[in-house]
Amino acid sequence: MTDAVTRSVRLPAVPETVDEVGALLAEVWDEAPWTPAGDRFRLELAVTEVVGNVVEHAYAHVSEEGSAPDHSLTLALDVDHERLRAVVEDDGQAAAVDLSDLSMPDAEAESGRGLPIALASVDELSYARTETRNTWTLTCRITS
């Protein structure tokens, strides 16, 4: 029996990558059939939101300056019998966010729900900034 499935990919930081993530996760679930549907969904939703956040914000400062260099992100997946983990990294600007002080916007808001959804969806969500790199780590413990 397989004990763990890992996968790491580098993807362009463009909106279409948000849907690539869904296809990539589907491949991982095929190789990790023990993972419960509910936990798969929780991770997919949170990864989609975090990747969407990176696509929208990480390179926004550079896009405004008109250059189009290699804007990318990496997604690493690591699934075993205890938990599902995803790590999303980019080399863009630091995220102006405090995960300990995030709340769901009110009903009128048309944006701002991405990270609150991610935070509510997984068991652990952390964000770290090193000198040039943003690292988002998402963990779902397997529930059953």
């Binding site: 944006s111 729900r113 991405g114 959804i117």
Partner: peptide
């Protein structure tokens, strides 16, 4: 089959 916060935002804009 799947909706994220951007999809929800579009629906809320339509509602308004």
């Amino acid at each position: 089959e799947f909706m994220d916060s951007s999809g929800l935002g579009a629906i809320i804009a339509g509602l308004k």
